[in-house]
Computed example of a mutant assay.
Amino acid sequence: MSTTIRENGVGTELRRWRGLRRVSQLELATLAGTTQRHLSFIESGRSRPGRAIVIRLAESLGLSLRERNDLLTAAGYAPVFAESGLEESALRPVRAALEQILHGHLPYPALVIAPYGRVVAANDAVEVFTEGAAPELLEPPVNMLRLMLHPDGMAPRVRNLPEWGRHIIENLRARTRRSPDPRLDDFVAELAGYVPQAPVGPEHLGFAVPMRLASADGELRLITTLTSFATATDVTLAELHLEAFLPADQATAELLRRRAER
């Protein structure tokens, strides 16, 4: 939790989040099951909100669990969502489930990613991403986003790097617009410096394109699926997502199958 949040108080934080979400006092009050007058009093500091209404307001604003904890602290309450270490016993069943999912996705690559691109688990098929990468990019904890776009990582092998790279960067920028984060802003700026500009021609399809990745066995065409833990009540778990790569054509599926057999 930042010093700024502690100093601003819950009223200032609510106004800031309403501005970011572009909702009026009336809209937010309606969503949270309270009155505009009550919300106005909270935002102006004339009323100290109860813990339950703070939780409802945070949920109505679509805040992450970490942001909800911060809002509770700004209102003078203890955080309600635990933040467990991934190795702690509380998340042991989750780790087992993730390992099963990763193994079940073989022969296709799949990873579990923490905030800012940090890899916390992966299956054996991800070795197709590390071919020829600089050793320093493969030192734990590996940052998958940096590995994908860095000129000493996958970038020289991504045949459509301008389109694929912009797809990654625009997704990250959308996240920073929804939940401002100076650290993520700096990371996005770094990644953007690795990606060449993509010309927009008559056949431009936006970012809805597979990644075309050269490998020792031939070109792979991969599409990505992202899975998050929507009902998580632990901050650590809520901030993880599973990134699974699927073949965009039969040739890619066959190539990955042959690699797995070796």
Results as ranks from 00 to 15, higher is better:
Ser2Leu: 10
Thr3Asn: 14
Thr4Lys: 03
Ile5Leu: 14
Arg6Ile: 07
Gly9Ala: 02
Gly11Glu: 05
Leu14Cys: 09
Val23Asp: 14
Gly33Glu: 00
Thr34Ile: 07
Thr35Leu: 06
Gln36Ser: 13
Ser40Arg: 08
Ile42Ala: 05
Pro49Phe: 08
Arg51Asp: 00
Ala52Gln: 14
Ile53Val: 15
Arg56Glu: 14
Ala58Asn: 00
Ser60Lys: 00
Arg66Phe: 09
Glu67Ile: 04
Leu71Cys: 05
Tyr77Lys: 01
Gly85Arg: 15
Val94Met: 12
Glu99Ile: 00
Gln100Gly: 06
Leu106Ala: 08
Ala110Trp: 08
Val112Met: 01
Val126Ile: 15
Glu127Phe: 07
Val128Leu: 10
Pro140Val: 04
Met148Glu: 14
Asp152Phe: 07
Ala155Ser: 13
Pro156Trp: 06
Arg157His: 09
Arg159Asn: 00
Asn160Glu: 06
Arg166Lys: 12
Leu172Thr: 07
Arg183Ile: 13
Asp185Val: 06
Asp185Leu: 04
Asp186Ile: 05
Phe187Asp: 07
Tyr194Lys: 00
Pro199Glu: 13
Leu205Pro: 01
Arg212Ile: 10
Ala216Asp: 13
Gly218Val: 08
Thr224Gln: 13
Phe229Val: 05
Thr231Trp: 13
His241Thr: 03
Glu243Pro: 06
Ala244Lys: 07
Ala244Arg: 11
Leu255Glu: 01
Arg259Tyr: 11
